[in-house]
Design a protein around this nucleic acid. Sequence first.
DNA 1: CTCTCCCTT
Length: 740
Amino acid sequence: MGSGAVGHRESAAANGAGTPTGQPLPILVHARDIVDAYAACDVLVLAGETGCGKSTQLPQILLDNRRRTGVSRVVITQPRRLAAISVAARVAHERECELGTQVGYAVRFENKSGPGTQIRYVTHGVLLREACSSSTASLRSQEHSAFHLNYDAVIIDEVHERDLNTDLLLGMAKTKLLERKGSAVAKSDAEESFKLVVMSATADIAAFTDFFSAPCRPLNGSQRQVHPQTPLVVKQLIIPGRAFPVERLFTEEPVQEYVNAAVTACAQIHADEPFPGDVLCFLSGQDEIDAACALLKDHLERYLGKKRTKHEVLIMALYATLAPEEQQRAIEPLPVEVRAQRRKIIFSTNVAETSITIPGVRYVVDSGMCKMRVGTSASQSSLQIVPISRAQAAQRAGRAGRECAGKAFSLYPERALFSVMPEFEPPEITRCDLASAMLTLFALGTDVRHFDFMDAPSAQGVQNALELLVDLGALDEHCEMNAVGRAMAALPVGAMVGRAFLEAMRAGCAQSMAMMAALLSVEGNIYASVRPERRAAADKARRHEASALGDMISVLNVFEKYLSLHPRERGAYCRDLFISARTLNAARAAYEQLLKLQQTRTVRQGANALCRDVYRAREPSWWSEPAGGPRPRMQLQRCLVAGFSRHAASLLEAPPSSRLSGSPNQTAGEFAVAPSSSFNVRYKGLRGGPELFVHPSSVIHWRRRPPHCILYQEILITSKLYVRNVLEIDSAWLDEATGS
DNA sequence: CTCTCCCTT
């Protein structure tokens, strides 16, 4: 069944693939065009606006017309875990099969798919990872067929978001398709072939079509042709969306205080616009959102009175770090019976732009601003409030037209769309740390310097990353990847953390380092945000588990304790210490994954190579413990130095002695009773650079004397250059680690 | 004395 007629898809519509109004999804109307185009090309570029059904229907259309498409196994990549899981569940339901059988998904930590899975939803990251291991396997068997994953069709979804992994997949897929096309005669094997579909939610797809139509354009400009350049056949299709019209309104002049203006606009919409219809207001961050919630409540109570406000308006905050239950409360629509006289007003960050859809929204208020991480290295960044792009502005406005015609009120003049905003956000690859991406490319059998990027990263960024990887011993002097690099590429952590982990395997403290690496990799601080009035209590609790050695060891202490507890006791422990259970749970999953990876051949070989190549010349006493017996954390500190030697800093000058509260014979490793005098203590990086300050959240500030030598996880640029997540080290270890 | 836009292997 399912072979032949395109019309078969009607059964899916009957199962609920149609709209609530009974109309079939727009993409089903175009199924025949899609099948025709797919059959006649190498790459299909498909634009389909939100709600056209492309993510759920396209794989089914290809599969159900396999006589013409030749597709019996398809993978479809999503930028987010939640999207992969929920779309897979939806499709399994439509096809009336159990999730994990014919239809399945795979995200990090979770695989619900099997050998019989024909439609497999994965995150971009999972497909990249699988392509890496298939590449390593094929290199071993002398077959250069990276990206050969046994899929007939590879679908990359939401390509307009242009995140790092999307760009790596696009370049990789193009190279492989060109290679195969060049050697089509030699390799007619059907198993070797796949077709590519890239799907975008915006109609601006010319750039993608151009990219795949053009011959290979390697980064360094060299004409290194490994294959005849037979161009790819690229077809593009635009499926109309099903969005309702949105009237876009702008201010006459630029707005100075956009938080206040947003609050006023929301109040006005509530007063003037018909019910039902909720309001979604985009601001840049949590601070602004909390302020706006309070301001709007005041404002409404002044004009409507407390009673009417309470009866008529529900004010909600929405941002990603909010607990899932609270997010759910913000998203949940008002009961139908009150929607005629009650309105929900949601202040949100750009989570509500793509990741979260809120039903019931008919009015959008857009500040035109968002927060963006600025800085080309992971280790030095700041979060800045910047104007959004024109594409984002359109996306935000579109949120008013999901269910019926809506209105979008922009808090900027229309001309700002062109005078202030860029057309698109810069692709992530042009503004992020490249070390991990480069390791991935090497593992895929591609040298970055010859990679065909859709948008090239900066030459400086590539240079910095190459230098780091050579320093860490992942690449040899000719920039070829060695066993250490292969192991680092196989670890789901950053390059510096990965290197520290391999070091720890060699030194025999891999288990502790797996915990440390997990903690260094999870997003967000384990110390949950605490309201100002509870900060003193949180500090006190936190101090209980703290180590004078620094933040990294302090957090490890907490994590070890957490893991030692029965799962039932963990919640209470987290509450008592004002710690984020979600973050620690994510760390636990990452920790367990690292323990497993430690057993794999690639990783073991990397650790062994470290032993042979890097330490051969070292003195045999390198790992011996100092007189007075071993300190339990010292091994760990030394291994961290091996990964983070670039992030070492030394005390610039001792503070005036009068500022020190400790008596002369107190050791440096003890905490003072009160926060110490070290706020103005300055450090300098070992390679020079500007003065660095220890972030006030660091446990280092509780010490009587600041350590002479530290390493840090990152530099945060705000009012000063602050180092965050700090660890005391012995400067002698640095010489050992860098071999000087 | 300060702070967490959004994602992910």
